[in-house]
């Protein structure tokens, strides 16, 4: 990996050195596939690239995962016990949303630009499903709760200052993939800001898939549930029998 990083660095430097007016943005990941194995505890991907720095330049990277429907629930005390009493189902939310940047987003660009590029938790569309039990009124409170809870899972995060710029030409950062990540296609957008405007964009992707025994079990449990159930029973009966046989005196 180090050899590759070194070779690419060299290539990028030669590419970026003729500091002409053409705004070049190059970005690459050290690995485009993540395999979730049974003992998967998360991964760290290296993203690096080169850009053409002229004025006040910033880089922001947004990694988004497959869209999901998420239920937000609110507890209330009922007869001394904390129960979920209200719920909001939100559709089309990214299951993964990491923003990495050279500086806090609000310092990089205006709210309008950020909104246009869907950059930041505030600009994630918050669309309530019909069977939600809350009114339109306190939506902001629910949205804040969603952002807070998703950040707690590590699936959403905002990391200003995580991108390091080296010698006005190169940048690099680590993307943290937590253990609870979902399989699917992940989009990586690298944006080059100059004086608060996007001048260049680079899009690449990461494929996250289950692998080995865990992939087989996961696929079986979800796509062939009846067989999985029967298999689980046979497996249990066989292990129970075996255990009795082994320890029988």
């Amino acid at each position: 990996m180090i050899a590759r990083w070194f070779a690419l660095t060299l290539a990028l430097i030669t590419l970026a050195l003729p500091a002409s007016a053409l705004e070049k943005l190059v970005a690459d990941l050290d690995q485009e596939e993540v395999f979730i194995t049974t003992d998967f505890t998360g991964a760290e991907l290296l993203l690096f690239g080169a850009f053409d720095r002229a004025s006040i330049d910033d880089i922001a990277i947004i990694v988004t995962g497959p869209s999901k429907k998420i239920a937000i629930r609110r507890k209330d005390k009922v007869a001394g016990i904390w129960l979920n009493t209200e719920n909001a189902d939100v559709v089309g939310l990214p299951s993964f949303y990491h923003i990495l940047s050279t500086r806090p987003l609000d310092d990089i660009a205006s709210r309008n630009t950020l909104k246009l590029n869907r950059l930041g938790f505030d600009y994630i569309p918050f669309k309530l499903d019909d069977d939600s039990s809350i009114d339109e009124g306190p939506v902001e409170e629910w949205k804040a709760a969603l952002i807070r809870n998703m950040q707690a899972t590590g699936l959403w995060s905002d990391q200003p200052g995580k991108i390091k710029v080296i010698g006005d030409v190169l940048f690099r950062t680590d993307i943290n993939i937590p253990a609870n990540i979902m399989p699917g296609k992940y989009k990586v957008r690298t944006l080059h800001f100059r004086d608060g405007a996007v001048v260049n964009e680079n899009v690449s992707s990461i494929t996250v898939s289950k692998s080995g025994l865990s992939a087989m079990i996961y696929r079986m449990a979800h796509d062939y549930a009846p067989f999985y159930g029967i298999f689980a029973i046979i497996f249990a009966v066989a292990s129970g029998w075996l255990a009795a046989a082994v320890f029988r005196k």
Binding site: K68, K69, I70, A71, I72, R73, R74, K75, D76, K77, G80, I81, W82, N84, D89, S95, W142, A145, L146, R148, N149, M150, A152, T153, M182
Partner: peptide, 14 residues
């Protein structure tokens, strides 16, 4: 079940 939860809100993927 009796203690006040740290966060009254929780999220779950559907």
């Amino acid at each position: 079940v009796v203690i006040t939860p740290e966060d009254l809100f929780s999220v779950e993927f559907l």
